[in-house]
Write a protein that binds this DNA or RNA. Sequence first.
DNA 1: ATGCTATGTTTACGTCCAGCACAAACAACG
DNA 2: CGTTGTTTGTGCTGGACGTAAACATAGCAT
Lengths: 389, 389
Amino acid sequence: MAERGGTEDVRRRNLSAVLTAVHRSGPLTRAALVQRCNLTRSTMGALVGELADLGLVYETDAGAARVGRPSPLVHANERVVALAVNPDVDAVTVGVVGLGGKVHRRIRYATSSVPSLDEAVNITRAVVEGLAVELEGTRHILGVGLAVPGLVNADKGVVRLAPHLGWKDVDVVGPFREALATPAMAANDATLGTLAESIFGAAAGYQDALYLNGSASGIGGGAMVGGRPLSGSSGYAGEFGHMVVQPGGEACHCGRRGCLETEVNLERLLHVAGLDHADAEQLEDALLSGPSFPVLREIRRQADVLAVALSNLVNVFNPEVIVLGGFLGALFAADGDRLSAAVATAPISGLGAEVRLARAALGAELLLVGAAEAVFAGVLAEPRQVAAG
Amino acid sequence: MAERGGTEDVRRRNLSAVLTAVHRSGPLTRAALVQRCNLTRSTMGALVGELADLGLVYETDAGAARVGRPSPLVHANERVVALAVNPDVDAVTVGVVGLGGKVHRRIRYATSSVPSLDEAVNITRAVVEGLAVELEGTRHILGVGLAVPGLVNADKGVVRLAPHLGWKDVDVVGPFREALATPAMAANDATLGTLAESIFGAAAGYQDALYLNGSASGIGGGAMVGGRPLSGSSGYAGEFGHMVVQPGGEACHCGRRGCLETEVNLERLLHVAGLDHADAEQLEDALLSGPSFPVLREIRRQADVLAVALSNLVNVFNPEVIVLGGFLGALFAADGDRLSAAVATAPISGLGAEVRLARAALGAELLLVGAAEAVFAGVLAEPRQVAAG
DNA sequence: ATGCTATGTTTACGTCCAGCACAAACAACG
DNA sequence: CGTTGTTTGTGCTGGACGTAAACATAGCAT
């Protein structure tokens, strides 16, 4: 409703469309961009020229030789970067991510205890200073994106509650912005994971996707509806872990009983497998290669409970694909058929039959890519303003 | 991504913004439109002029006399109408709805048995022919919108399954289009109810809203996310009635156990109240004016179960408001505090505290307004094309 | 070497909105 | 009752932008 009406807006939208296309789909010829964006060759020439002047894209000589005039490839400039930070209970991971989605550097800074906000800021500053030489070569640092395991009000840049970090009602964006002297933004880690998987991962190309991630600290997730991330009114949407699937079940730290994450969790899997530590590969080994009967039984139990939650979500969202990450991905690898079958048959009348289940594809880079994407959203929407600043 | 780039698109968008504003918010002065749409007075003059030429709006002399040059009011032309049809188990309701949301006529054609598709088409044709004289006065019939109680693929115009009507995998749009010689579209009744409440009803002005409706045939609903209706990949989203809230509970017709609508339903309420028929007023009387102890107990039980479902939905969507319609509205009236309290405290850390519960506001006109809105969506998006056709 | 084909570039043109100056209509004030 | 001030619609000019069409270019095919 409150769209700006001017002619200026047209140019902005077109620049945005072109930049977004090369960012998401990788290098494209001008001709390909003309098709995708539904513009003429002359307009595309002007747009690519302007983006190149802004330093956001560059052109290289054509790759595939073909009949007709060779068309140079338009690349998103990977030297335009975002910093990405993921504070967690035992480490702060910092990344440098280029436009186009490439993770240039990923540094996991292990901590001896759960990091406070100040510690996270200091660690990030130290790591970034250590990369100073490397960052010299980049054209532009657009900002820093924070992927926080907890409830985050993205608009205000405030962490409402991050139980495992012990952060509560704190402004996280401010300290990072001042420490790094660059724009900062924060969002829930699972929400950003959803974004990353839907752009570069297992949900790429789908308009309606769900993402559920299982970690030691619980189950989080997010949704893409009609190609847009579901944020909710304050950015808290996607707390799938606290869907009640077993009324009167075990008490959850949220105060209710029988939440999904009290029934389906990593700890129980590790317990029956006789493992102590949450190591992804070890767990996968234990679940996949000749699991013992108790392990099998627990896998089936958790798969059945998860299936109920997934069926509910299918009934609510009618998605094209559901992506499972973390230990939920391992669970899917271990008993995917059971999960698929339950999801496909349980909801009303074949509704679920069209839903594809998939395992997350981005692995360790997931949150860095997602956090960077939150930063890139600014340039992608308004290439002129942000590149100038 | 595939937005048309032309300058023509700017005009289309501005025309759309202006028409949408007067359609949703009622008569507005040009000055008000200038503010809302963020355009200049001269541009607004051209836009209103063009919309008036197209017959979509008209101007009347100013209402409130005020300092300054009097400003005429721009009205959406209520003589531009959509037909709305709601087939149900015991009646086919046909409506004539004008731009601006006014229901000109509403005719409930009772049937002795559950109507087949052919019967529904014939009844509609007969009713519309009976209104021929009246419709002469209208400027333009834009099309017919169908609100169907069941799973509808809105893109294809196909009813996948309407259990209570006994319709299954049938093209409903085709027959209506041919019978009435006008464009036709179909959607799920609850989805359209959501649309109606979010534009003209209790959820007006909210960007993120949920709607749950309880009828004799179950519980349906829909969501508005970021101001857009949540449709899902095939248009089946919003089947809240089949969220499992009581695993191992009573069997549901969908094949699972403990679905929301097996636990929270009209029949049980009528039973404890000693009523036979599903009359809205009688039910409300029974629930509100000195209910017996068994009735009170059932109200509290259903409210508690509903609260769990609502909490889950709050965790998933983080909405601003939840609108309850049908017997759920009566339930809310009877035990609103219990419901509000449960929703506000149950989900994690005050997340739910910001959610407002409200009762549906549109009553009997709900589905007609919603179905018409689905038709109006076309003109609102592209005023030029549709008005010309 | 010549033609073919797909692509980039230049130019004239039409569309559209912003900004400015002006006119119209009414209220407030003396 | 007339003057002044305020708000709002209208006409006009200029600038920004995309389109269409003709032209230029660069490699492949024969």
